[in-house]
Design a protein around this nucleic acid. Structure first.
Length: 597
RNA sequence: GGACCGGUAGCUCAGCUGGAUAGAGCAACAGCCUUCUAAGCUGUAGGUCUUGGGUUCGAAUCCCAACCGGUUCACCA
């Protein structure tokens, strides 16, 4: 049994015995003791002083004494004002260490066949331009979340909905037709998504120019937009696409395939993947069917102009359009369609959408609509809403060319990692292949950790020049701790030292060693909390704390040079377990660990 | 204007289901490598937790109001 629940139970019994008090969970405040005090767990006794009819300190004293008598796991207690600090016996911590050492997947719950099926949608790019920094946050959060949810005992399906149709891709296609002169990724050596993105920008450039000229002729900005030949051509292309024009469809397929190959490369580099990819071109029509069903059931209503709406006033919201006057779908309709298709394929219990916080309203509405349409999971679908990534100059704007390209950023991280490693002489004894692997792991680790350690809800600032740090609270710091431990363990093996618990240890252990044990013990709770609050940041902060603790221990005590064999073997075990937990924690963040660095 | 989210050290962030003297890292300054990896460790300095009320034995944390910043309220996606 977990020490918190165990002591919680004991305290309950104690309150009953001493004061005839039935304490519910809200009164029982058992928390980790702050660093500056002696003890492991702290009971706040203020809530009981009334029942005890004694001063806080006297109450704490009384409870402490009772608990110590009735709980073999306790070693001692002390009272400071209204706080009862309980110290757990060393034997208990050693046993906990022993138990975790037998569990290769410590902290991870396995999902059985009947475990809840959770689908996580993330990434969801448009096919008219390459991935940028914002997508990176999305992908990293989504991927990490999928591992965390899975570690909490759920079956997980990672999914991506690619927005492969619409006016945006037609713009790229049109520009390519007009000015591309048959350029392909092969002929130009450019990555497919970048190539298509260039034509999207080119369209915009010509379009702006055209608008400027029209306005010079005396048209208002609005009139100019309506009069634009280029825009009319793009719209015409979209109509042709929808009508199934074979030439347009073929161009569309060709260019989208260029983009997919580019995306695939980026995903591999980032280290994310999907179990199932949906394409909007294949799902966008099915939403209409669902909406019409809803209309029959009286969930929606038809306006005089034959457009279809949902009335959300009972939920405190307004009217939401679902089908246009001409019968075509809007964004919301498509999401309903995609949801329906997914449910046919996977009997999901929960759906998590990883989408930026600018769509909070959209998902609030989607949740209500899915619920009304009879999807059991609609009501509590999770919109994992994250903040945007800003640059020091402010928001990224693709039109102003201030976006940070995902591929460029990844390359930059890796080359910075290489420079730093070379400066420190870390790669001297490595083969070129090994060196390449290390700098890749470290560079990506820095990027991923930087993004995942902050609370997803918050907007974050990314300074390309300064954010890339390898010291302090960073990915490489944690990876370094791991590599260091691995080095010790390799040497221990060479020397024939084993990792085990034996002999009289309790009296020999230092505070630091004990506190490392306690830190490791907290890992499953961190995984659980990260799972219930959907927050990779909790894992990140946990593992940073652990790495810091280990580094302090490593600095103050020697593992291999310890002459007392019981103590040495204990330290090897402790190091081994720390390495394991670091590896698993970083795994949950989608970050790899290097064997040396 | 309505709704939602955020505001903690010079900078980037923890802490927020009320608890003890508000924590890290970076940057600054001062130290520690003839012993397992110094991408490390130790110390100094840095705070009216945006402001004002309220609830409470106790508020960065909960409630109310104001201020600042962001997002959103399309027959766009």
């Amino acid at each position: 049994m977990n020490i918190y629940t165990l002591l919680g139970e004991k305290t309950r019994q104690c309150l009953q015995a001493l004061y005839q008090l039935e304490a519910d969970d809200s009164l029982l405040q058992l928390q980790k003791t702050k660093k500056e005090f002696v003890g492991d767990l702290t009971l706040v006794v203020f809530p009981f002083v009334k029942a005890a009819k004694k001063s806080p300190a006297a109450t704490a004293e009384e409870i402490g004494s009772w608990l110590l008598q009735h709980t073999p796991e306790l070693r001692s207690y002390n009272v400071i004002k209204g706080f009862l600090n309980l110290s757990v016996s060393t034997a208990y911590w050693l046993q906990a260490l022993q138990e975790m050492s037998r569990d290769d997947d410590f902290g991870i719950l396995k999902a059985g066949d009947s475990a809840p099926l959770v689908m996580i949608e993330y990434s969801s790019p448009n096919t008219n331009k390459p991935l940028h920094l914002g997508h990176i946050r999305n992908n990293l959060l989504g991927y990490s979340l999928s591992r965390i949810v899975s570690a909490n005992g759920c079956r997980v399906v990672k999914t991506n909905i690619v927005n492969d149709r619409g006016i945006h891709i037609c713009k790229s296609m049109l520009a390519w037709q007009k000015w591309g002169q048959g350029e392909t990724p092969e002929s130009s050596g450019k990555k497919g998504d970048h190539l298509v993105g260039e034509y999207y920008v080119l369209f915009d450039k010509h379009y702006k120019q055209e608008l400027g000229e029209l306005q010079k002729q005396g048209l208002s900005p609005e009139e100019a937009e309506n009069a634009s030949i280029l825009m009319q051509e793009a719209r015409e292309m979209l109509r042709a696409w929808e009508a199934g024009d074979s030439e347009i469809r073929s161009l569309w397929e060709t260019m989208n395939n260029w983009v997919y190959r580019g995306f695939e490369e980026s995903y591999i580099k980032l280290g994310v993947d999907f179990d199932k990819i949906y394409y909007e071109s294949q799902t966008y029509l099915s939403g209409k069917q669902k909406v019409l069903e809803g209309l029959d059931k009286g969930v929606f209503y038809r306006n005089e102009d034959s457009s279809v709406w949902a009335d959300l006033s009972s939920d405190g919201l307004d009217q939401k359009l679902l089908l246009r006057t001409d019968g075509t779908s809007v964004y919301m309709t498509q999401d309903i369609g995609t949801a329906a298709l997914r449910f046919e394929e996977y009997p999901i219990d929960k759906m998590i959408y990883v989408v930026g916080n600018e769509q909070n309203y959209h998902f609030k509405v989607l949740s209500i609509l899915l619920d009304r349409l009879g999807f059991a999971w609609g009501k509590d679908l999770v919109h994992f809403s994250y903040g945007m990534v800003e640059l020091p100059e402010g928001k990224m704007k693709s039109r102003e060319g201030t976006v940070v390209d995902a591929d460029d950023l990844i390359e930059e991280m890796i080359s910075t990692a290489r420079e730093t490693s070379e400066e420190l002489g870390k790669l001297d004894s490595c083969s070129p292949e090994e060196a390449a692997d290390i700098v890749r792991i470290v560079g990506l680790g820095a990027l991923k950790y930087f993004i995942l350690k902050v609370d997803p809800r918050k907007n974050m600032t990314f300074n390309p020049k300064e954010s890339i740090d390898f010291n302090g609270n960073t990915g490489p710091f944690i990876q370094y701790t791991y590599a260091r431990i691995r080095s010790v363990l390799r040497k221990a093996e060479e020397l024939g030292h084993s990792a085990r618990l034996q002999g009289e240890l309790a009296s020999r252990l230092s505070e630091k060693e004990l506190s490392l044990c306690k830190n490791l013990y907290e890992f499953p709770a961190a995984v659980k909390e990260a799972g219930t609050t959907y927050s990779p940041a909790i894992i990140a902060n946990y593992v940073y704390e652990l790495a810091k603790e280990y580094n302090q221990f490593y600095h103050d005590y020697s593992v291999l040079h310890e002459t007392n064999s019981a103590l040495r073997e204990f330290r090897i075990l402790l190091s081994e377990q720390t390495a394991k937990v670091i590896r698993i924690a970083l795994y949950l963040l989608g970050i790899e660990v290097p064997e040396r660095m």
